[in-house]
C-alpha cells in the first residue's frame, strides 16, 4: 500500500487531467469535451471544499490569538471572527439577496475594499520617489526616460515644446515596446516549458515534492 501513501496517485491524476485539458483544446470532439467539462466541474467542487478549509484555518489561527491574548492582535481576531460569523449567519438565514446582507456587505466590506485599493495612488508616489534617486547610470537613464514619459502626457509641457511628445512616444513605442515583447515571449516560453514538465511528471511542486 506504499503507493497510496506516496505521491504517485496525485501525480497520475495531474498528468491525466492535463492531457484531457490539452486534448479538449486541440481536438474538440464531443467525448473529450464532455470529459473535460466534468473535470472542470470537479475543480469547482474541490475549490468550494477548499474554501471551507480556508475558513477553518482562519478560525483556528484567530481563536489561538484570542486564547493566547497575542499582544496587539487578539482584539482584531475577535472582530474578524465576529464579522465572519455575522456574514455566515445572515447569508444562510436570510440569503445573500436580503437587504440586511447587502447593507453589511456595502457598509462593512466594500468601503474598506475601496480604501485599500486607493492606497495604490499614494504608494506609487513613494515608490517613484525611491526609484528617482540617482545611484547608477541605469537609474539615471530611467529618470530621464520617466521624465519624458510624464511630460508627454502633460498638455502644458507639450505646448511649451512639442518634442516632449515626440521623444516620449518614441521611448514608449520603440525601446519600451520591444523589450516588453521580448520579455513576454520569453516568459511565455518559460511557462510552456514548466507546463510540459508538469505533463511529463517532472515538476512536482504541487505535490510538495
Amino acid at each position: 500500500m506504499s503507493f497510496i501513501k506516496s505521491k504517485t496517485i496525485p501525480l497520475v491524476i495531474t498528468v491525466i487531467v492535463a492531457i484531457f485539458m490539452l486534448l479538449e483544446y486541440y481536438f474538440p470532439v464531443p467525448g473529450i469535451k464532455s470529459t473535460a467539462k466534468t473535470i472542470r466541474d470537479w475543480a469547482v467542487i474541490i475549490a468550494a471544499f477548499a474554501l471551507g478549509l480556508g475558513a477553518a484555518n482562519l478560525l483556528r489561527i484567530h481563536s489561538l490569538n484570542i486564547q493566547r491574548r497575542t499582544t496587539g492582535i487578539w482584539p482584531f481576531s475577535i472582530w474578524l471572527i465576529f464579522m465572519l460569523l455575522l456574514f455566515f449567519v445572515v447569508g444562510v438565514t436570510l440569503s445573500i439577496e436580503h437587504t440586511a446582507y447587502k447593507w453589511i456587505y456595502q457598509n462593512g466590506y466594500l468601503v474598506l475594499y475601496a480604501s485599500v485599493f486607493s492606497l495604490i495612488s499614494f504608494y506609487v508616489i513613494t515608490s517613484f520617489y525611491r526609484a528617482m534617486s540617482i545611484r547608477s547610470i541605469e537609474t539615471s537613464i530611467l529618470i530621464v526616460c520617466a521624465i519624458f514619459a510624464m511630460l508627454k502626457n502633460t498638455p502644458a509641457a507639450v505646448a511649451f515644446w512639442p518634442g516632449f511628445e515626440t521623444i516620449g512616444t518614441w521611448l514608449l513605442d520603440v525601446p519600451n515596446a520591444s523589450v516588453h515583447r521580448a520579455a513576454i515571449l520569453t516568459a511565455a516560453i518559460g511557462s510552456i516549458a514548466l507546463s510540459i514538465r508538469v505533463l511529463m511528471g517532472r515538476e512536482r511542486a504541487q505535490l510538495a515534492e
Partner: peptide, 19 residues
Amino acid sequence: TKMVRYLSSTQWSYVAGVM
C-alpha cells in the same frame, strides 16, 4: 499551524491582511 495562513479570496482583502 499558524505558519501558513489563509487570509481572503478577494484581492484587496488579502493585500490588507498581508500589510
